[in-house]
Amino acid sequence: MVIGVCKVVLAIDEAFSLKEKRHIVKSLVERVKSKFNASVAEVDLNDKWQRAVIGISCVSNESGHADSMMASIVNFIENDGRAVLFDYSTEIIHID
């Protein structure tokens, strides 16, 4: 079993309140869940209205597939346009 994990840091310069930020983040999280069938959640900076950290994970039987899926998700988020992808890191975990 292979687990792909990704941490994405977003800058949301268009948000001027927590309500606006949460609207953008919730929409982005739901779109990623729907399109990629991955587990996604906001995991840090919940009280900062122009920054967000999103955690993403997927399970696969091949490391190449998990890596490709994480790359596709990062690309999708980067091209969304409502938030700027500030930083990200991925990790592939092998479990026997």
Score class of each variant (00 low, 15 high):
residue 12 I to A: 01
residue 13 D to A: 15
residue 1 M to E: 13
residue 51 R to M: 11
residue 46 N to H: 14
residue 77 I to K: 02
residue 15 A to Q: 10
residue 30 E to Y: 05
residue 60 S to Y: 02
residue 25 V to H: 01
residue 14 E to V: 09
residue 58 C to R: 03
residue 70 M to E: 01
residue 44 D to A: 14
residue 62 E to Q: 14
residue 82 R to L: 07
residue 12 I to V: 10
residue 92 I to Y: 04
residue 92 I to N: 04
residue 67 D to F: 11
residue 12 I to G: 04
residue 26 K to W: 03
residue 40 V to G: 13
residue 14 E to N: 13
residue 13 D to S: 13
residue 27 S to R: 08
residue 41 A to H: 09
residue 93 I to R: 09
residue 74 V to T: 10
residue 94 H to Q: 12
residue 20 E to I: 08
residue 64 G to V: 07
residue 51 R to C: 05
residue 7 K to T: 14
residue 8 V to R: 05
residue 91 E to I: 14
residue 90 T to V: 13
residue 41 A to T: 11
residue 78 E to V: 03
residue 38 A to P: 06
residue 26 K to I: 12
residue 70 M to N: 05
residue 47 D to Q: 08
residue 16 F to N: 13
residue 12 I to E: 09
residue 44 D to N: 10
residue 50 Q to C: 00
residue 48 K to L: 15
residue 57 S to N: 04
residue 13 D to M: 07
residue 32 V to F: 05
residue 48 K to G: 06
residue 84 V to I: 11
residue 45 L to K: 07
residue 81 G to V: 04
residue 10 L to V: 01
residue 39 S to T: 00
residue 85 L to N: 03
residue 5 V to T: 07
residue 55 G to M: 10
residue 18 L to H: 09
residue 8 V to I: 14
residue 49 W to P: 01
residue 92 I to C: 08
residue 36 F to I: 10
residue 19 K to Y: 08
residue 75 N to M: 05
residue 3 I to E: 04
residue 11 A to D: 15
residue 89 S to A: 14
residue 78 E to G: 03
residue 82 R to A: 01
residue 7 K to R: 15
residue 94 H to K: 14
residue 19 K to M: 08
residue 70 M to V: 07
residue 18 L to F: 04
residue 25 V to Q: 09
residue 82 R to S: 06
residue 5 V to P: 00
residue 44 D to V: 01
residue 85 L to W: 06
residue 47 D to V: 08
residue 88 Y to L: 02
residue 10 L to H: 00
residue 16 F to L: 09
residue 55 G to S: 13
residue 91 E to M: 15
residue 64 G to E: 13
residue 42 E to H: 06
residue 52 A to I: 06
residue 82 R to K: 11
residue 15 A to D: 09
residue 84 V to R: 13
residue 66 A to Q: 05
residue 50 Q to N: 15
residue 61 N to W: 01
residue 36 F to E: 10
residue 20 E to L: 12
residue 1 M to Q: 10
residue 73 I to H: 02
residue 67 D to H: 10
residue 6 C to M: 14
residue 2 V to G: 08
residue 67 D to I: 07
residue 76 F to C: 12
residue 22 R to V: 03
residue 71 A to H: 12
residue 39 S to M: 02
residue 63 S to I: 02
residue 65 H to G: 15
residue 68 S to L: 11
residue 61 N to H: 09
residue 83 A to R: 02
residue 36 F to H: 09
residue 92 I to E: 12
residue 79 N to C: 03
residue 36 F to N: 02
residue 21 K to P: 03
residue 44 D to P: 00
residue 34 S to G: 06
residue 26 K to P: 07
residue 65 H to N: 15
residue 57 S to L: 00
residue 45 L to R: 06
residue 40 V to T: 03
residue 86 F to V: 01
residue 54 I to R: 04
residue 96 D to S: 15
residue 12 I to T: 00
residue 29 V to T: 12
residue 77 I to D: 00
residue 67 D to G: 06
residue 89 S to N: 08
residue 11 A to W: 08
